[in-house]
Design a binder for these strands. Structure first.
Length: 575
RNA sequence: GCCCCCAUAGCUCAAUGGAGAGAGCAACCGCCUUCUAAGCGGUCGAUGGAAGUUCGAUUCUUCCUGGGGGCACCA
């Protein structure tokens, strides 16, 4: 619910202006600008807010002097209203310092900002599918990784103005489900569970809780019952993890409407299948044949039953046909061999390869101290996601999963997670929020605005009546703004960091991962705590400085709260 | 055997081909009569190995070593 008009983020607007200037300059030299002209944060030893290596790229094309090009660009950049200084540094960087007035306006933006941004470029319509665990057992702790990645990414993409649906695919048909039914039947009848069946204790529990009439149920009926019961636990676990899918899509829906047959017919008409030894095979496209996928795959077995491959193709076709031109799938790395296969099939059906993204995340290794925890579902020796959440807490769990890039093989030490709860980085971020809230509570007692909301009211009043009565110097505009030289380093660093928030989300979109945001929040917290130690916010003797710092920490609070929210982590008002 | 992923500080992780590789935890030394010490300041400490491409490589290429995963008419 936007409470006020949101202006375009500072760095985004500035980026556009800088690119415009660079293109103009290049045009005047008869040059083409290279495709990407990214903004970068400068390294720690460089005193600047933004760092550009554009001249180095241009020099490569022109074979000219990087320093001369950098100087020409810096000359243009320094004329932009937000830029205080554009300097050149060897071997050809342009470093920008922003004006404090612009930074402060951006902090106000962070305070006022409530809703999603206007999308950069065109608005994307994306269906993101994740977790999709088979309902043949409880949800494993490892599913937490995919759940966190998918949910946080969906939240971030929505914040960036895109339309995103979240879906969980349920394999409620096929051999695994049959086996589930037979395993439950064996449990019910007190017979030994089949060798290749499911041996977990959850089926014993399920057998004990069967309704009276289940005594006469067939294995098929039992499997249907078990799938429903287990899916229900998945849904409970996801809710407890604060992941709320728009839809749980059952494979049986596809069978009910003959979607597999329809898909197979289309593939046939496209000449993408052939028969061999009684089975129907998908013929790989030429390009794929020599690459990662080493052989053709079966769509329909000799016994006439379809494979999961065919069902998956039909499912993805269904997603496209529901009006989503872009699909994101999040899979564990153990499915990586499946990517070229599915991609090949979708391409054969005429779907653009660029619209299908698979995020593979490496598997997690659960440890109890020095001992690896076995995770085989059939052996029945595994850690439920719910147990993990109960033990460690949702916030710590989600932050832990969100911090790592999907490609990292992460180690989750249960003992460590349990023992070191207080030292978990997530509390470092949450503590920022609690401290800001605490300052505002104290501010209220001393005649200052008692909350960011109250401060917002005061600032808005000031905006509406800039020359109005201001017995209290609450708004940072005009007189309340410290002279530029009077900014403490800690204050300025925070303002700059706040300004980088939207760029961080853009990085998440680019990487299709929330982990840049988690890193950003840790860095923001790492700037706030020193500020808190050094800069006292509430100072009755200096009401203007107090007003400015209240605005600053309100901006910090807004940013950290929004960032944590995007990761699905709570922002407590006290700790 | 073939294919994919990973290797960064004692540990867990960051770093769109950019500058002097950043955090947190652990260790050691300090800091609470002032808005929350789940905090702050300081010290120690790293790109697995060898070539190559580049003005510039943790990042790209090749090889090697070590770890994980995958190669079903299973999912």
């Amino acid at each position: 619910m936007p409470t006020s008009e949101i202006s375009e983020p500072l760095l985004q607007a500035l980026h556009d202006a800088l690119v415009g200037q660079a293109r103009e300059w290049a045009g005047s030299q008869g040059l083409d600008v290279p495709g990407e002209l990214p903004l970068a944060a400068p390294p720690s030893h460089v005193k600047a807010d933004i760092s550009l290596s554009w001249a180095l790229g241009l020099a490569k094309i022109t074979k000219g002097s990087p320093m001369a090009i950098a100087a020409a660009l810096a000359g243009r950049f320094s004329r932009l209203p937000e830029v205080a200084e554009a300097s050149v540094s060897s071997p050809g960087f342009v470093n920008l310092r922003l004006k404090e007035t612009a930074l402060l306006a951006e902090a106000e933006n962070a305070l006022f900002h409530a809703g999603p941004y206007k999308p950069r470029g065109s608005k994307r319509k994306i269906l993101i599918e994740f977790v999709s665990a088979n309902p043949t057992g409880p949800l494993h702790a490892a599913s937490g990784r995919g759940a966190t990645l998918g949910d946080a990414l969906a939240r971030i993409l929505r914040m960036l103005g895109h339309e995103v649906a979240m879906e969980y695919y349920v394999n409620d048909c096929g051999r695994q489900v049959d086996m589930l039914g037979r395993s439950l039947e064996a449990r019910r009848d007190g017979k030994p569970v089949p060798e290749d069946g499911y041996h977990g204790s959850y089926l014993e529990d399920l057998a004990r809780q069967l309704p009276a009439q289940a005594k006469t149920w067939s294995a098929t009926e039992l499997s249907r019952y078990a799938v429903d019961a287990l899916l229900k636990t998945h849904q409970e676990d996801m809710r407890a993890f604060d992941v709320h899918f728009d839809r749980y899509f059952r494979e049986s829906e596809l069978h009910a409407r003959k979607a597999l047959e329809a898909t197979l017919d289309r593939l046939k008409s496209l000449g993408a299948v052939y028969e061999k030894e009684g089975a129907v095979w998908f013929k790989r496209p030429e390009e794929a044949a020599s690459a990662e996928d080493d052989k053709d795959r079966v769509l329909v077995r000799a016994d006439g039953r379809p494979t999961y491959f065919l069902a998956d193709i039909a499912y993805h076709e269904d997603k496209y046909s529901r009006g989503y031109p872009e699909l994101i799938d999040i899979w564990g790395a153990d499915h990586h061999g499946y990517v070229p296969r599915l991609k090949g099939a979708l391409e054969a059906l005429g779907r653009a390869p660029a619209g299908f993204h698979v995020i593979l995340h490496q598997l997690i290794r659960l440890m109890r101290g020095n001992e690896a925890v076995k995770m085989s579902k059939r052996a029945g020796e595994f850690v439920r996601l719910k147990d993990l959440v109960d033990e460690v807490g949702k916030d710590a769990c989600r932050f832990f999963f969100a911090m790592r890039s999907p490609g990292s093989h992460l180690v989750f030490d249960l003992e460590l997670a349990k023992k070191q709860t207080a030292e978990n980085p997530v509390y470092y971020c949450q503590y920022v929020h609690a401290r800001v809230c605490s300052i505002f509570r104290e501010a209220g007692k001393r005649g200052f605005p008692a909350s960011p909301e109250a401060l917002r009211g005061a600032v808005q009043a000031e905006v509406r009546a800039p020359s109005g009565p201001s017995g209290e110097a609450l708004a940072p505009r005009g007189a309340a703004l410290p002279a530029e030289a009077a900014f403490a380093k800690e204050e300025r660093d925070l303002l700059v960091k706040i300004a980088w928030f939207p760029e961080t989300l853009a990085a998440c979109e680019r990487e299709l991962s929330p982990h840049p945001l988690a890193t950003y929040l840790l860095e923001l917290a790492g700037l706030f705590h020193p500020f808190y130690e050094k800069c006292r916010v509430l100072d009755p003797a200096d009401r203007e400085r107090t007003a400015f710092r209240l605005l600053l920490i309100a901006g910090v609070r807004g940013t950290i709260a929004r960032g944590l929210e995007l990761l699905g982590v709570s922002a407590p008002e006290s700790m």
